[in-house]
């Protein structure tokens, strides 16, 4: 028998009512519109997409922070819907956010921040020793437990956020743009840390990012999200090497790269009136081409 994937999304939907003035419902936003994916244990799944494509809404549903309006979410083969998100569910999934400054309480020491989930989940054993071990895991000195967030650099804060997420030994980490606020040299070390921890602890990652170059290096599988739908998915080398969907091609063509090899790999996008087309332009063009084909 093959093991269940750590995370499975089945035809996930989230529709938000669109409210006008005076709170009257004026329509709806299909923020997530039928997303299915599954991540086997130990793998990194990259969810790529531009702002508003639905990435954070998917993350929030997996975390149990907002309920889907359709579809199912399974952790280790068991649906987390039905009942309200249980403590056991929340222990299995932890999240690391984009802005390490905002996700840490400025009035708590690093040690106190890391203790919050330990206390909430009734961690058995010596919690102070656990905090020290977690700091060591993220390669920060023990005495950082006494420090406050404002005394830390951006990279150090993100290490603390990772330590806090690991405190209750989750199975799955949802990483929502974890390095997009950091300098590239700091980013490189955080990604290295996440890779090491993933290997050591057998963690599974859902990695949300708009940085395709980073995704190419960190994820094994990628899903390209456009307006709440995954328009293309597959092994990252495959999708990036031979993108099939217009939107994926446009995204790849837009990445600012630093070498001729990368440049050669970017698909050529036809200019419209001398301008780089928008995704909407491209999709409209394709629609036109299709209907012409049908007529011919």
């Amino acid at each position: 028998m093959t093991a269940s994937p750590v995370l499975e999304l089945r035809d996930l939907h989230k529709v938000f009512p669109l409210r006008g003035t005076f709170g009257r419902v004026r329509g709806e936003v299909r923020a997530v519109d039928g997303v299915s994916l599954s991540i086997p244990k130990g793998q990194v799944y990259g969810l790529a997409g531009e702002s508003g494509s639905g990435k954070s809404t998917i993350a929030r549903m997996i975390m149990g922070l907002t309920r889907p309006t359709g579809g199912d979410i399974l952790l280790d083969g068991v649906s987390i819907l039905g009942r309200q998100a249980s403590l056991a569910h929340r222990r299995k999934v932890q999240m690391v956010f984009q802005n390490p400054g905002a996700s840490l309480n400025p009035r708590r020491t690093v040690g106190q921040s890391i203790r919050v989930p330990l206390d909430a989940h009734g961690f058995p054993g010596n919690r102070q020793r656990r905090v020290a071990a977690l700091l060591e895991m993220v390669q920060l000195p023990r005495h950082f437990a006494e420090r406050y967030p404002h005394e830390l650099s951006g990279g150090q804060k993100q290490r603390v956020a990772i330590a806090r997420a690991l405190a209750v030994e989750p199975r799955l980490l949802v990483l929502d743009e974890p390095t997009s606020a950091l300098d590239v040299s700091v980013q490189a070390r955080i990604i290295e840390l996440l890779e090491d921890l993933g290997g050591e602890l057998g963690l599974t990652y859902l990695f949300i990012s708009h940085d395709l170059s980073l995704m190419r290096n960190f994820a094994q599988t990628v899903g390209v999200l456009y307006r709440g739908r995954i328009v293309e998915t597959g092994a990252v080398a495959q999708v990036f090497g031979a993108p099939q969907h217009d939107y994926t091609r446009l995204l790849l063509a837009s990445v600012p790269v630093i070498s001729a090899e990368e440049e050669a790999m970017r698909p050529a996008i036809p200019l419209i009136n001398g301008e780089i087309p928008t995704a909407e332009d491209l999709l409209a063009l394709r629609q036109q081409a299709r209907s012409k084909e049908r007529q011919a």
């Binding site: 490189a188 170059s213 980073l214 190419r216 290096n217 790269v257 630093i258 990368e262 970017r266």
Partner: peptide
Amino acid sequence: RNLIAAVPRLTGRNG
């Protein structure tokens, strides 16, 4: 050199 090396490549690791 270190700055350039830290930039992830679209072609994957080490080009």
